[in-house]
Each structure stands twice: as C-alpha cells, then as structure tokens.
Amino acid sequence: MRLRNKPGAMETIKDNSQYILTDGSLWKGKWQERFAKEQPIHIEVGSGKGQFIVEMAKAHPDINYVSIELQTNAMISVLEKQLVEQLPNLQLLLVNGADLTDFFAEGEVSQIYLNFSDPWPKKKHAKRRLTYKTFLKTYETISKSGAQLHFKTDNQGLFEYSLASLSQYGMVLNQVWLDLHGSDYEGNIMTEYEEKFSAKGQPIYRLEATFKEK
C-alpha cells in the first residue's frame, strides 16, 4: 500500500502525543497507564488506514486497543479518525510491528488481530509473512496465557499457509471461515481492503486460534 505524502504529518503526530507514539518502548509494561481505564489490551498489527481498529474501539468500550502501523501516511489516517472520535480506549503506535517485544512486556496483550497482511507469495519470502513461526513466537511472548489470534485475508495461499503454520506451532484452531461474508458470522467489522475485495466478489477468509496455555 503506497499513500501520497501528507504535508505536516510528523508535526501532526508530535502535536497529538496523547493519542500516538513513535517510541513504544517507553511504555513497555505500562500500557494501561495510556488509557482511561484498566481493561484487556487488544492490538492490531498493520492497521492500514484504521477503519477496523477505530470501529472495534467504538463497538467495544470495555477493551483497550492499540493500533500498530509502520507507514506514517497510513497512520495519519488512523490519527485523523481518532481526532474526530477521541476514543479513550484507543492508542496508536507508529513502529515496525516486527519488534513487538520491544514495546510490550510478557503477558501484556490479551488478543491480536492480523488483517489483510502482505502475503509475500514467493517461498523465499516466507519468513516475512506475519504468520511465520518467528512472528507467532513474538505474539505468544507478549500475550497472556491462552490469548487468541484473529486473522483475515482475501489471499487463499496465505490463508492455507497460515492454517498450517499455526497448527504446526501448536495453536488450537477454534473456528475457520472460508467465505466469511457468506456465513452466519455476526459482528464482523470490515477493513478498507475488505470492503474493496468483497465488492469484487472475492471470498474473505478468517480464522480464530488460541495459543497454548503457559
């Protein structure tokens, strides 16, 4: 995803430090202090323009959410939404999601969302897929015992790979959807990509999996 540079992006980020961070390591183990109330923390790795995470925070005020995105211009779109909503249970983190153990302490997170991640289709790039075993290990490290991972994609190859990767890692697959929008699943909140792909008639794949008890 390539976005046009937004003028004054870094100034906007600096002016709204109550909502957005560029150095999450300062809050490692202390994320609850960033929120109005102490509640379970859910994170989305790769939030894009933020439609999913903002709507989730609006729908579930009893959960604290952290939006994680590497691209500044994408995160500015999330921040713009947050400046309108001013949700007390949403924080933004502009960092590389590959380094989550630098920003979250062991057992600090209750749930993780991966939505429409880059499929990295070539086999030689498998280690870059966000459901590769090293990423799963990172997620497990920062998560509470028995935490869940929720994953959505339009890419069949990535979905099949992820099913195998999670199973081989020892995770329990709770539910799997091969056509999410054609199912009876309720409460689905779509991302911008999801709206685009589903409008073209592409099936959306989804899974919920649980890490083994620690």
Rank of each mutant, 00 (worst) to 15 (best):
S17P: 07
Q18F: 15
L21Y: 11
L21N: 10
K28I: 04
Q32Y: 06
E33T: 02
E33L: 01
E33F: 00
R34Y: 14
A36F: 14
E38Y: 03
P40K: 10
P40H: 09
P40V: 04
S47E: 04
I53N: 02
E55A: 13
E55G: 08
A57G: 11
A59M: 07
A59T: 06
A59K: 10
Y65W: 15
Q71S: 08
Q71F: 08
Q71P: 13
A74N: 09
S77Q: 10
S77P: 02
V78Y: 12
V84D: 13
L92W: 10
L92D: 07
L93D: 06
N96E: 15
N96H: 12
A98P: 15
L100I: 08
L100R: 05
D102T: 11
A105F: 12
E106M: 05
G107F: 02
G107W: 05
G107I: 03
E108R: 07
V109M: 14
S110Y: 15
S110R: 12
I112Q: 05
D118F: 06
P121N: 10
K122M: 06
A126R: 03
R129Y: 13
T131N: 00
T131P: 00
K133I: 03
Y139L: 00
T141C: 01
I142H: 00
S143C: 02
S143Y: 00
